[in-house]
Write a protein that binds this DNA or RNA. Sequence first.
DNA 1: TTTCTACTCGGTATTTGTACGGATTAGTCC
DNA 2: GGACTAATCCGTACAAATACCGAGTAGAAA
Lengths: 222, 222
Amino acid sequence: MNSEEVKPIRILIADDHQMFIDGLKALMRREKELVVIGEVSNGNQAMQFIIQERPDLLITDVSMPGMSGIELTRWVKQHHPCVKVLVVTMYNDREIVNEILMSEAEGCILKNTGKQELLNAIKRITDDSTYYSTEVLNIMMTRLKKHKTIEKNTSVLTPREIEIVKLIMEELSSEEIAEKLFISKRTVDTHRKNILQKTNTRTIVGLLKFAIENNLTEYNSD
Amino acid sequence: MNSEEVKPIRILIADDHQMFIDGLKALMRREKELVVIGEVSNGNQAMQFIIQERPDLLITDVSMPGMSGIELTRWVKQHHPCVKVLVVTMYNDREIVNEILMSEAEGCILKNTGKQELLNAIKRITDDSTYYSTEVLNIMMTRLKKHKTIEKNTSVLTPREIEIVKLIMEELSSEEIAEKLFISKRTVDTHRKNILQKTNTRTIVGLLKFAIENNLTEYNSD
DNA sequence: TTTCTACTCGGTATTTGTACGGATTAGTCC
DNA sequence: GGACTAATCCGTACAAATACCGAGTAGAAA
C-alpha cells in the first residue's frame, strides 16, 4: 500500500546533447510523478532500452546521429505502441513537422519550451491524449490553409463547367459525361475546350492539378 | 488607475440555443477577466454587434439558422481580424472540422467541453495563440496520416516507370518524354501500358490520383 | 544454363482528346 | 433594343492515348 499513491511515469530521454538531457531532467526534478529511468544518446541505444525496460514515455530529439528521432518514433509506434512519444525539435520546419505528424508521435514541442508547457505536454500525452505546441500547430494550419487562398480561381468557371470538371475527375470520358448529362458529346467537348482555355492548361493533367488546387474533387488533400 | 488592474476580455456569444449561451455564461461567471458583453442568436446579429462593439473574442456555434458559424468566422477574419474566434461544435465531423480550420478560427472545441478546457482555450486564444481540442486534433491527424498508409503501392513500379509517371505529371506527352529520356516513343507507350496495368487504372486521370496518393509528384496534398 | 525481370522497340487499329472553325437559344443587364 | 454570357450543338482535322499483337537484349537470380 505504500507505493500505491501515484504510479510514476517512467521516462526515457534520447538526445545526443547531454546538455539538453540535463536541462530536461532539471525541469522535471521537482515532479514526483515523473521519473527519468534512462538517458541514451542515439536511436539504437533507445531501441535496446525500450525493449528491456518498456518506459511509459520516450522524449526524443528529431535529429540524432545514426537513426533519427523520427525513424525511432516510427519504430516505437510499430513495435511498442504503448510507449508514448514526445518529439522535441529545434526547428519548426514545415517538412520536419510533417514527418513528425506522420510518425504518429503523441506530441511535439520546440526545444525552447518552458517548464509549464513541457509538463502540460507530458500530462496530456500520458492521459492518452496528444499535445502539439502552438508553433507546431501554426505550421499545420498554414499547410491546410494554403488551399483556401487559391480557391477563387474557380469563379471563372460556370456551374456547368464545374460539373463537367468533376465528372472528368471521376475518370469519365467525354462520351460518358455526355450520356450522364443527357447532352451531346460535342457540347461536352466545347465545355472542355472552354475549361482548358479558362484554366490556362493544355492537357487533362494540368486540368487535374487545377481541380485539386480548387477542391473541385473529393480527392484532395484530406 | 482604478480600472487598470486587468483589462477584461470582452466576449460575444453567438448561438441559437439560449440554453447553451446560459451554460457558457455560467461557466465564465466566476472569472473576473471574462465579460460577456453580448449574446446573439444568428450570424447577422453577430455581424452588427461586432461592427459596433468590437469584442475581443467571439464564441460561436457552427450551425446556426441563416449564416453559419463558419461563414461568420470567415467574415470576421476578413473584415475584423483582430476579433478572435472560438468555434464550438456539437459534432466532430471530418468535413466540419476541415471547414473550421479553413475559416481561420483561432480555436475549436466540442460542446461537451468542461469548464477548465474552455478557460484554457480562451486564455490561449487571447494570448495570440490557438487552441484546438484533442478530439479535433485527432481528426486532423487521421486526415494527415491517411497518405502514409497507402504509400507502399509505389513498390510495384520499377524505377524507370516511376520516372515516367513523374514526367507525365509534369504535363509532358509521351513524345516529349521519349525525347527527354532519349528513348523511342514506343518504349514510353509500353511503359505507360504497364503502369496503367499495375496501378489498375484506365486513364491518366486515375494514374494522376495514384501518383498523388503515392507522392510521386511534388504536387501533393501538403 | 535456364529463368526471370526491367527495359527496350516495332506495327496496326481504335478511341479519345485537342484545335480550329462556326452556330443557336435563353436569359440578364444596361 | 443592344450587349453580354451560359449553355447548347455541329463539322473537320490532327494529335495523343489506349488496346492488341509482337519481339530482342542485358543482367540478376536460380
